[in-house]
């Protein structure tokens, strides 16, 4: 008896959100099938990989990672190199130095950095904040104004600062906004609704539903993503049909498995290799669970995860 395939057809689809402009702009989402199930229907836009650089330059990067960037010290030159990494669909500029509890870099300096990076690259730009909700209000407002017309994505608005950010980033300057929630489908939906109430169109919102390194409570992240995709497709819940973007590198490069020096755990081998594998394994799992885009740091990981996406296309 032959096998009877029964494709899982959904009458709803994920919304398409475009980031960037020109030839290299990217589109996230748009599909009406489960992650990578292109055999069921239309997978539409391929999942995307972003490469991350920090406003603080290469200081906090491992020597092996810094090597890729050679002797570059100017942020624009670093950005340019990053954008040329094989498989990089977009660039994520993270303002680690803007954190008031850290370097507390003034907003004007950050704007100059963002503009310099934006001018240096031809792929879409994602601006990642300082992790301080208050600071991000001022930071994102100013950068969104300076980058008008570039269609950048700002990560992220949370339940504390969404009102101001939706009004400035989303409405006043027409950029894209990411809504960040803590591994809970109900919170994710609620924040989408709230941002929508300010007047931002669903096509201008993406979600960061939470991230974790494989082994560090990743089961919650995976299940949240899978439930989100199911709610979007199966129940046609329009308030949760936004594509998902997941910052992977900012989790994976800080756990013991990536950080521990080889001298302390010789059997584990090179710390750089561990960091790369951790980033690849976590990113692939995020994409399989429902992420439409992942943000990575090491060019080797960017290439491998991009290869995974191409191989399943």
């Amino acid at each position: 008896m032959p096998f009877k395939s029964s494709p899982q057809k959904f009458n709803a689809s994920i919304k398409t959100v475009e980031i960037g402009t020109g030839d290299k702009k990217i589109a996230l989402g748009g599909e009406n099938v489960l992650p990578f199930y292109s055999f069921d229907g239309s997978a539409e836009n391929l999942k995307k990989v972003g490469i991350e650089i920090l406003d603080t330059g290469l200081e906090t990067f491992s020597p092996e990672l810094a090597e890729f960037y050679g002797n570059e010290t100017e942020i624009a030159a670093i950005a340019k190199k990053a954008a040329q990494a094989e498989g990089a669909d977009f660039l994520c500029l993270r303002f680690e130095g803007a954190d008031p509890n850290g370097l507390d870099r003034p907003v004007e300096e950050c704007v100059a950095i963002a503009s310099a990076v934006c001018d240096a690259i031809d792929i879409p730009l994602v601006i990642y904040g300082s992790k301080n909700g208050e600071k991000d209000i001022a930071l994102f407002g100013a950068i969104a104004e300076a980058l008008q017309g570039k269609n950048a994505l700002f990560m992220s608005a949370n339940e504390e600062n969404y009102k101001t950010l939706a009004a400035s980033v989303g409405l006043a300057y027409g950029q894209k906004l990411s809504a960040e929630s803590a591994v809970d489908i109900n919170l994710a939906k609620q924040l989408n609704v709230l941002i929508g109430q300010v007047g931002v169109a669903p096509e201008s919102i993406v979600m960061n539903v939470g991230a974790a390194t494989a082994g560090y409570g990743f089961e919650y992240v995976a299940s949240t993503m899978q439930r989100t995709i199911m709610a979007a497709l199966q129940q046609n819940d329009v308030m949760i049909q936004m594509p998902i973007i997941t910052p992977v590198s900012s989790e994976t490069w800080y756990v013991k498995e990536s950080v521990a020096a080889e001298a302390d755990v010789p059997e584990w081998g090179s710390a750089n290799e561990r960091g790369i594998m951790n980033e690849i394994a976590t990113a692939a799992a995020c994409l399989a669970a429902g992420s439409h885009a992942v943000i990575l740091r090491h060019p080797t990981s960017v290439k491998a995860v991009s290869n995974l996406i191409q191989a399943l296309a």
């Binding site: 494989a214 082994g215 990743f218 498995e257 594998m277 951790n278 394994a281």
Partner: peptide, 10 residues
């Protein structure tokens, strides 16, 4: 170990 640590943990 570089492969095993994240894969087994996942």
């Amino acid at each position: 170990y570089a492969q095993a640590l994240p894969l087994f943990a996942l």
